[in-house]
């Protein structure tokens, strides 16, 4: 009997799962959501976890999602009664097996639904699994992606320049602003990002809640991408004044790396397993601080010599040495 851990204190959600208590296939255990970290970290038995994000305030919710999407020991589903997550598909990119929106929480959950969630990954055909492993192993020897997207084929592995970029003030605004306002901010962000990356042949590969993972074809030099990222930080005041209509300072956090991955077209990236993709996401979401630009050691060598003085050693993250750009100072910032 598979154990289902439910982390929720929302009466509607608890009622929705109530039927599962009588199931012969699954054993439902309800936990206090505030203990999720302790319980999920220490338990080594097989189980499936459902986290109800309405049980957390904004800050806790972000931390809980970051924590659960990092885990590899168990499969999980996200319950979102208030539809707070803008991009549920991104959860699946990060390994989620199920997503239950508010509109679905009516009556009782079916055993069949739980079965599908629990077997979401194990049901995948063996060939696909082998392909994933194969792609994973091929990464270290991946060829350069060059400079022409037409020659980059889906399913093949290449080296790319990865840029994780996030407009980081949104996290602060979200508690005081409606979804419509945040959507407006993000529309401006993606539109501007597109104008910045297009001349460098970059493409938004995956969107995150408040940012994106951008791929630039790599033909041996990352210097133009570094300079453009540098300019995004340097021109922050100008961008805030001209790109956005909010009459306040905005900022980006950016992480740059050179890595390898199997290429798939946007929207079809759910099955990609890549250390490089995982790393850049971890770097951007877990390490990068507001308003900063980080470069891994591998891309650091492409900084123009005249700009080296404007980078300092930042530390080590998941085995890679990082360098951080010094920041221009603005009055009345933040």
């Amino acid at each position: 009997m598979t154990e289902i851990y439910l982390f929720s204190k929302n009466r509607k959600v608890l009622t929705f799962f109530n039927k599962l208590k009588r199931s012969r296939t699954f054993s439902l255990i309800v936990y206090n959501p505030s203990n999720y970290r302790k319980i999920l970290s220490k338990n080594n038995d097989p189980f499936f976890a459902y986290i109800d994000i309405s049980s957390f305030n904004f800050g806790e919710r972000t931390r809980a999602l970051a924590f659960i999407t990092r885990q590899r020991k168990f499969d999980y589903g996200i319950i979102d009664p208030d539809s707070k997550i803008d991009d549920p598909a991104a959860l699946f990119h990060k390994g989620a097996s199920d997503y239950i929106p508010g509109s679905f929480i009516r009556g009782s959950i079916t055993v069949n639904r739980i079965k599908k969630a629990v077997t979401f990954y194990t049901m995948e055909p063996l060939e696909e699994e082998e392909e994933k492993v194969h792609a994973f192993n091929k990464q270290e020897t991946a060829k350069l992606s060059g400079s022409n997207w037409d020659l980059i084929k889906a399913g093949e592995s290449y080296s790319f320049i990865f840029m994780y970029i996030e407009i980081d003030i949104v996290q602060e605004w979200i508690s005081n602003s409606g979804k419509e306002h945040i959507d407006t901010v993000m529309n401006y962000f993606y539109k501007h990002l597109h104008t910045v990356i297009k001349p460098l042949n970059g493409r938004v590969w995956m969107k995150t809640n408040y940012g994106a993972l951008v791929l630039f074809p790599y033909a041996g030099s990352a210097t133009p991408v570094i300079i453009e990222a540098f300019k995004l930080i340097l021109n922050r005041l100008i961008i805030s004044a001209e790109v956005y209509p909010f009459k306040t300072m905005l900022s980006y956090k950016i992480a740059l790396d050179i890595g390898s991955t199997q290429y798939q077209i946007r929207g079809n990236t759910g099955n990609i397993i890549s250390d490089s993709v995982n790393y850049i996401f971890h770097l951007g979401t877990q390490y990068a601080e507001r308003g900063n630009l980080y470069l891994t050691n591998r891309i650091y060598t492409d900084i123009p010599p005249g700009l080296l003085d404007y980078f300092t050693l930042s530390g080590n993250f998941e085995g890679k040495t990082l360098h951080k750009m010094k920041l221009p100072v603005f009055n009345s910032d933040y």
Binding site: F230, L234, P304, G306, L307
Partner: peptide, 9 residues
Amino acid sequence: NDMFLYNRT
């Protein structure tokens, strides 16, 4: 800003 970069690159 552009002259800052120009001078260094």
